[in-house]
Simulated assay, not measured.
Amino acid sequence: MARRARSQRKARGGLIGQLFRWAVIGVLVFGLAGPVLVVAVYRFVPPPMTWLMVERMVQGHGFDRRWVPLSRISPQLVRSVIGAEDSRFCEHHGFDWGAIRKAMDHNEAGKKLRGGSTISQQTAKNVFLWPHRDWVRKGLETWFTVLIEGIWGKPRIMEVYLNAIEWGPGLYGAEAAAQANFHVSAAGLNPAQAARLAAIIPKPLAWKAARPGPYIQKRGGHIAAAAGTVRRDGLADCVL
Rank of each mutant, 00 (worst) to 15 (best):
A2M: 14
S7T: 12
R12Q: 15
G13R: 12
G17I: 03
F20I: 06
R21D: 00
V24C: 02
L28H: 06
G31N: 07
V41K: 14
V41H: 07
R43L: 07
V45L: 14
P46D: 01
P48M: 02
E55C: 08
V58L: 14
Q59E: 15
H61Q: 15
G62D: 01
R72M: 11
Q76I: 02
L77I: 07
L77Y: 11
V78I: 01
V78P: 02
I82S: 00
D86K: 06
R88L: 04
H93M: 11
D96P: 06
W97I: 12
A99E: 03
R101Q: 15
K112D: 07
K112R: 15
G115R: 06
Q121L: 11
V127A: 04
L129D: 02
P131Y: 14
R133I: 04
D134P: 03
W135A: 13
G139A: 11
G139R: 13
L140C: 05
W143D: 08
F144K: 07
T145N: 12
I148N: 11
E149G: 03
G150P: 00
K154R: 05
K154Y: 02
G168Q: 00
P169A: 02
P169Y: 09
L171K: 09
G173H: 11
G173A: 04
E175F: 10
A177N: 08
Q179Y: 02
A180P: 03
F182C: 03
H183Q: 11
S185L: 02
G188Q: 15
N190A: 08
N190C: 01
L197V: 01
L197N: 06
A198W: 10
K203A: 15
Q217V: 13
R219G: 06
H222D: 05
I223M: 05
A224V: 06
A226I: 00
G228H: 05
V230S: 04
